[in-house]
Design a protein around this nucleic acid. Structure first.
Lengths: 205, 205
DNA sequence: GACCTTCTCACCTACGTGTTAAGC
DNA sequence: TCGCTTAACACGTAGGTGAGAAGG
């Protein structure tokens, strides 16, 4: 039965590896088009979902995992004739608020045992008290993850940025290829996938 | 503006106090009838939901909050002619598995800042690996909450039982007054409330 | 047969999507 | 006008109810 348990773990590991590769390809296909994320007053989830794996933590120490969004530049962007162009006048950028992963705080062992998904973070263009992250519409951002040791005297922080997950915050999609790609992969947009498929507008590579 | 903030906190506190009293009355009305909780293979949520408030913790220390179910006696119960009667032969009872509140572990400050609800615990009559709690159908249980200090050397545990939340685990409701009360207060049973109301079978006191 | 359990079902809650038209 | 934002909407996902028939 130990052997069985071992092979089950192996399968789980293979499945996770495959899922990670698929996620990476998904982000890449959005990055190629210049990714966009909707922001709304009440907050909109990200798609794709940002997922990270961590290792090297002390299994018995306590950590919180944080997410914020770094302004990639000081420009306001504009979608003109099918491409994004930076606006003329740079504007001052304040750092975004920080989103605390809802499983925080937790043991190093917990964070290391599975992929950590930020599926519930909500992006907003208005500040309204909830757990939403305030972003400036039509500005470009790069997600960044922080690992903070808590509960003890040491306040060590490690930070990691993910360039392939950069996006421009928008109140409505500008590039319709982005819209199509979102509809194709986000299960919550299935209604629109069905509509497009019946018109023959979605193909697989 | 400090005054405004103060009065907002006061309103929030009043709302919470009212909610707590309503919860207590809800549990009491089920207790009077002898409460029943459905158990299924895949696990069934409790209704009403067990909610507790805690105080006196060290705000900066780390705790996990646990829930288990103590066998109230060694009998198997039977619903005959509108009342629950204990079976003849006492049986050995093993303690139930423990449910870890999903916000665990967390700071004392976190646990004390709001009511803690066990809304997601699932009761089952089969063991199947998930986070469900295994109970024996037709046996009586009393919910019990544990506060465990974690992350440090001290392993202090405090335990609290809640006699008014005792119930008999069942695979189908026996007392139809229990069914009516569940339908009346559980939003997820709204379909059946509508049906009963259109027949004039549900009245308010 | 009597009792208990299991499964499928219709009907909800709750909320995540892009669309569309209206607003500014 | 034009560009951007908002709110209502239809249509999904995801999953929590007891009812009722079927199974053991």
């Amino acid at each position: 039965s130990e052997l069985e348990a071992g092979s089950e773990e192996g399968d789980a590991s293979k499945r996770e590896m495959k899922a990670i590769l698929e996620e990476k390809e998904l982000w890449s296909s959005f990055e190629e088009l210049t990714n966009e994320m909707i922001v709304t007053k009440s907050g909109r989830r990200m798609f794709p979902v940002l997922k990270v794996r961590v290792s090297g933590l002390d299994p018995n120490a306590m950590y919180s995992i944080l997410l914020d969004f770094v302004a990639a530049d000081r420009n306001r962007w504009k979608y003109v004739n099918g491409e994004w162009i930076p606006g003329g006048k740079p504007e001052p950028q304040s750092p975004s608020c920080v989103y605390i992963h809802p499983e925080s705080p937790n043991f190093g062992a917990h964070w290391m045992k599975a992929t950590i998904a930020f599926s519930k973070v909500k992006l907003s263009n208005k500040m309204n008290g909830g757990g939403q992250i305030l972003l400036n519409s039509l500005h470009k951002y790069e997600p960044r993850v922080h690992i903070v040791k808590v509960g003890g005297p040491q306040k060590m922080i490690s930070s990691f940025a993910f360039p392939e997950t950069k996006f421009i915050a928008v109140t409505a999609y500008q590039n319709e290829e982005i819209t199509t790609l979102k509809i194709k992969h986000n299960p919550f947009a299935k209604a629109f996938l069905d509509a497009k498929e019946s018109q023959g507008l979605v193909f697989s590579p």
